[in-house]
Amino acid sequence: MSEKNINLKLHIWRQESPSAKGSFEEFKVSVSPHASILEMLDDLNNRLEKEGKIPISFESDCREGICGTCGLVVNGHPHGPLPKTATCQLHMRNFKDGETLYIEPFRAKAFPVMKDLIVDRVGFEKIQQAGGYVSFNTGSAPDANAIPIAKEMADLALDAAECIGCGACVAACKNASAMLFVGAKVSQFALLPQGQPERYERVQFMVAAMDEAGFGSCTNTYACEAECPKGISVKNIARMNRDYIVAKVAKRTA
């Protein structure tokens, strides 16, 4: 732990309320290379509190990359420039001494800024409520592995289920489209037997909720896949497209 601190110049987005006009505030920090970017903000907030200033608001929870709560845009990259890494796992050793960082909230009409770096991701909740579940009969617990599932299907479903719903796909997309998120949520059930009864209704409900929530339309730039902290594949979007088209063309439930 003897490595030297690195000095950074930070431009952090400050916005008092959803309706207030925000702007960047400049800070100079000296931070241990072992600290995560969130720990750097914690440090900075301690300093601000000591100085009697209002600390920077940002969200975080598990700090081990699985809850999807944190999410900052660092120099134009949601969750920072390191691929397949959530903000909480982004360590300062990945930055050079003397570097300038612009830290911004996720930008999308459907994700309004609440305060500083916190955005309201209620749109994702609406999408999940519309179809992000499977229905089953309650009663005694069923035997594990009672339904045979092909290894390939199980793998693909688990890959899709890796989505932590952080919203980086929306933040990365130039159209603020939520299709990678919805594609993953649709796919994780569409690939498994348990998801079949509601498969074609689910995709229609979730897409309708996505459109309703004000997300943009996908134009296949694949920026979402590149920025996703879990490396969710755009093949999930393709699967959602296919299921949606099948549902609309071949199924009686419109």
Binding site: H11, F24, G76, Y222, A223
Partner: peptide, 25 residues
């Protein structure tokens, strides 16, 4: 037009060239 509206605020630092092709954008 709709997509521009859905992304009404742009980032100060744009890293689009690092995550998507120029053809797609």
């Amino acid at each position: 037009l709709e997509n521009r509206k859905a992304k009404s605020t742009k980032y100060k630092v744009n890293a689009a060239s690092e995550n998507s092709s120029i053809f797609s954008r």
